[in-house]
Amino acid sequence: MLGEGILKGLAETAKNFAGSFVSEDRLTTVEYPEQRLLPIENTRDFPFLVYDGEDPEAGLRCVSCQICEKECPPKCIYIVKSTDKKPDYVGKPQFYPARFDIDISVCMSCQICVEVCPFEAIKMDTEFELSTDDRFGGLILDKHKLAKSNEHFQRIHPTEAAEVDARLAEEKEKVEAKAKAAAEAAAAKSAAEAAARKADAGSAGSNAEGVKP
């Protein structure tokens, strides 16, 4: 019958109209910025550099290996390596970035830099309200703006941060165990050497007495 489909359509729209007053499923508007959706854990927006501890300079994990700069598809990272070294989280002296700039007007949030970083130094942040009115430099984030603490990382990506922390702790333990074993071995060796020298000196001394001038 002509008009039947139209009436079915009208019923559908009326259902949605009435439903929008009673059920949240039928009124899905979130009035930003007064209301916000809960952020999803794995979301990624722009990168940031992780530092351990309190000091962003001393605790910065980045060792300026420049792998992320090479792998970045739109080439938005600019790194200048330092000339001196500073100790990293296990105590080994490493280079650090004298300059680390990311141009977020070029960055496409592909997250490849995070994937290829061997040192867990660069991770994805979740902040997206980064608009600025400085069109000539406001969208270039330098090392100071990019460095954020590990606590921040644990807050925004708890699961990933827990994994990374576990891995780094494991590495640190391994290095420390190796160092301890090496130290023990070195201590044992030096103790053995000292004992051998003493024995030598004693025998040398006794030998020396027996030797006629």
């Binding site: 899905t28 999803i40 854990e41 794995n42 979301t43 990624r44 496409m108 949030s109 592909c110 997250q111 490849i112 994805m124």
Partner: peptide
Amino acid sequence: FREREKILDLFESLSGSRMMCN
């Protein structure tokens, strides 16, 4: 788009981004 939002939320929690999933 109402249904699409639900699917995009799934993509965001899986890959980090709603549309540019990589």
